[in-house]
């Protein structure tokens, strides 16, 4: 049930934000500092999500096969592989490490 609450509330806020850009007078959102903070927000959040998704297990830090998958993803991205290839390579390498070594 709480998952539905999260999905619906996040959906409502996501739409409200999109609509705000179309309705709110430009000068309110165009302050240079607000703009700059807004432009930097995705980089900060995505970097934090990478760390949390790779190195945490609930509220503990954990090093396991996910780190191998992330490394492979980084190499694939550096080689300009398409999104799906990056994802599949990361999953396959982590799964491979688990299957072959039993670690992580």
């Amino acid at each position: 049930m709480s998952t539905w609450v999260a999905v619906l509330v996040a959906g409502a806020i996501a739409y409200a934000l999109k609509l705000a850009g179309h309705l709110v007078p430009a000068r309110l959102l165009e302050h240079p500092r607000a703009r700059r903070a807004g432009a930097l927000l995705p980089a900060a959040l995505l970097a934090a999500l990478v760390v949390v998704q790779t190195a945490s297990d609930g509220d503990r830090l954990a090093v396991d096969a996910r780190l191998v998958g992330l490394g492979v993803a980084a190499v694939a991205l550096a080689l300009r592989a398409p999104f799906l290839v990056v994802i599949v390579a990361a999953a396959a390498s982590a799964a491979g490490v688990r299957a072959l070594t039993g670690w992580g």
Binding site: L46, G69, A74
Partner: peptide
């Protein structure tokens, strides 16, 4: 078993990647 947890991390990295080209964004990241 299928490494989907690693795939999630890779998805975030792939979304982040093009933003790292801008120096301030990379520092913030």
């Amino acid at each position: 078993r299928w490494g989907l947890d690693a795939a999630a991390a890779a998805a975030f990295l792939a979304l982040l990647w093009p933003r790292l080209r801008q120096r301030q964004a990379a520092a913030v990241a």
